[in-house]
Design a protein around this nucleic acid. Structure first.
Ligand SMILES: [Mn+2]
Ligand SMILES: [Mn+2]
Ligand SMILES: [Zn+2]
Ligand SMILES: [Zn+2]
Lengths: 147, 147
DNA sequence: ATCGCTTTGAGAACGATTCTCATTCACAGT
DNA sequence: ACTGTGAATGAGAATCGTTCTCAAAGCGAT
């Protein structure tokens, strides 16, 4: 079940693109809201009971609308989570290069500030129009370490 | 043509895995050395005139041997560049979400230091064994901005 | 030259993602 | 409630990047 607090703002964001909040999209978003990690398309399909082709289409639209964020996993397909405006605060990821699992991680405020500052200078410096930054840490998760 | 300075250390790194520096591998590495951006597998195949299946196999082996680094692009296949030990210093990437092009970018030493410090604390903090970090900036490149 | 191992390359196989299109649905009038 | 219009759906085909297969060729040591 998609929490109603989110639903309100989601409807708005969808409306801009003339998209509707259908039962399928509700189910997809609910899956992302309740999954505690970024999910693969397949995982979303299973968790939401929405046909795969529709999940692909919907996730693409939701990403386009800024409601869902694509997270680059280690392999085996992209993962997805609710965009920051619709869920948690800003955060980054620990990506396990062994099992592919992605978990959240929040760096210090100091690091974020410095990143913001540095990234903010890019447009003037090299003419690159920044939409966001990705700061992922890659390695082996606790589980994959003890083997 | 692969510069001889690199060739020396490459041979060593290959030897560890009992791999040889063949003409094909030379061509693949030369393509990466002279391309000024991370290249897709297809681009490497074209630039090196090595058959696609061999390029895939070789790139995988070279990545495994730590000679080549895989760079996550925006879409349309992974990209590759010479690993830092065999080319430039440590750096990061500007990824264009429109055309997929990836260009290098070096943040301030201060930012790198802070990242190192923060990343270095992760093993003790959450049991995550770090191999490396990814700090990519995403957005639109200069070319894709003026449209 | 010969042996034992690595490498090669064309194509088949595969898995993830996108496309197609006939059908169904949602919402805004009326 | 009824209707019209465009959005959404879903099953399967098509596509695309990548991996696999295997017979032929290459390399280095003896
Ligand atoms: Mn996350
Ligand atoms: Mn680079
Ligand atoms: Zn793991
Ligand atoms: Zn671009």
């Amino acid at each position: 079940m998609l929490s109603s607090s989110i639903a309100a703002s989601v409807v708005q964001a969808l409306a801009v693109r003339e998209l509707r909040l259908t039962a399928n999209r509700r189910a997809v978003l609910a899956a992302l809201e309740h999954g505690q990690r970024p999910l693969t398309t397949e995982e979303v399909a299973v968790a939401s009971s929405v046909p795969v082709s529709t999940v692909y289409r919907n996730l693409a639209e939701l990403v386009e609308a800024g409601i869902v964020a694509r997270v680059a996993g280690a392999s085996g397909g992209d993962r997805h989570e609710l965009a920051e405006a619709f869920s948690e605060h800003h955060h980054h990821h620990l990506v396990c290069i062994e099992c592919g699992i992605v978990t959240d991680f929040t760096p210090s405020a100091q690091l974020e500030r410095l990143i913001e500052k540095e990234v903010g200078a890019l447009p003037d410096r090299v003419g690159f129009e920044v939409t966001h930054h990705v700061f992922d840490v890659r390695g082996r998760c606790r589980d994959c370490t003890r083997t």
